[in-house]
């Protein structure tokens, strides 16, 4: 009688960032996903890792999709969204491919560390050699697989590189527990060691915890 719960699209099952996160997150933990979109990652975490998840999302259409999947989601902006969250009330707080969209990235990273025991942050590397080359040769803002927008229509207002992020973490006494690098979101290998990572990695995913 009831409508079937919408399944997670095939292409998302093989996403590198999703696969890393599914491996990282311990079963039964509590997860907060900032900018959870249609809830694909949270649904996977719930169904495969028995994770109790919450999402934050701004877009009404996507919120409806989360609700269809039975997920709990808060309609708010990440930039002022964590104020009302208790200290250390989640095991993991995830910010997946969303950092460059936030207005106050440093505040968001600090808030994540306050609310969660561990933070997971994944983003596209603006210092990847293809991006560098594009800017060098064409003299225009790079448009690529990792940064698929023209400068005038991009939602990304804070582009960053791996080195930039390392500096931000050090500055805020956030310890990097693990780093993962990959070339593509939806295919290809993931590696935890990469020489010249800031030059060669298109994406990175960090596992962070406040330094003791």
């Amino acid at each position: 009688m009831s409508a079937p719960v919408p399944s997670v699209p095939e292409r998302d099952l093989v996403r590198n960032d999703y696969r890393i996160i599914l491996d990282l997150v311990e079963p039964g933990s509590r997860v907060l996903d900032l900018g959870c979109g249609s809830g694909h990652l949270l649904a996977l975490l719930r169904d495969r890792r028995k994770v109790g998840g919450y999402g934050l999302e701004l877009d009404e259409e996507r919120i409806v999709e989360c609700i269809e999947r039975g997920l709990s989601v808060f309609h708010c902006n990440i930039d002022d969204g964590l104020r009302d969250f208790d200290n250390q009330s989640f095991d993991y707080v995830i910010l997946n491919q969303t950092l460059p969209v936030t207005h106050k990235p440093e505040l968001v990273i600090l808030e994540m560390a306050r609310v969660g025991r561990r933070s997971i942050v994944s983003f596209a590397n603006f210092a990847h050699w293809r991006v560098r080359l594009g800017l060098l040769l064409n003299g225009r803002m790079p448009v690529s697989e990792t940064i698929p927008y023209q400068w005038f229509e991009t939602p990304n207002i804070h582009h960053l590189t791996l080195t930039d992020f390392d500096v931000l973490c050090r500055r805020n006494r956030l310890g990097v527990l693990d780093r993962y690098y990959f070339r593509h979101l939806d295919r290809g290998a993931v590696t935890r060691r990469c020489r010249w990572a800031n030059f060669r990695a298109a994406y990175a995913l960090y596992l962070l915890a406040p330094e003791a």
């Binding site: 509590r30 109790g52 009404e60 919120i63 989360c66 609700i67 709990s72 989601v73 808060f74 009302d84």
Partner: peptide, 17 residues
């Protein structure tokens, strides 16, 4: 909604424009 969530209760909050 915040109070419920901080108690670990399943809660969704939507503010419609």
């Amino acid at each position: 909604a915040n109070a419920l969530r901080n108690s670990g209760i399943d809660v969704t909050f939507v503010e419609l424009q």
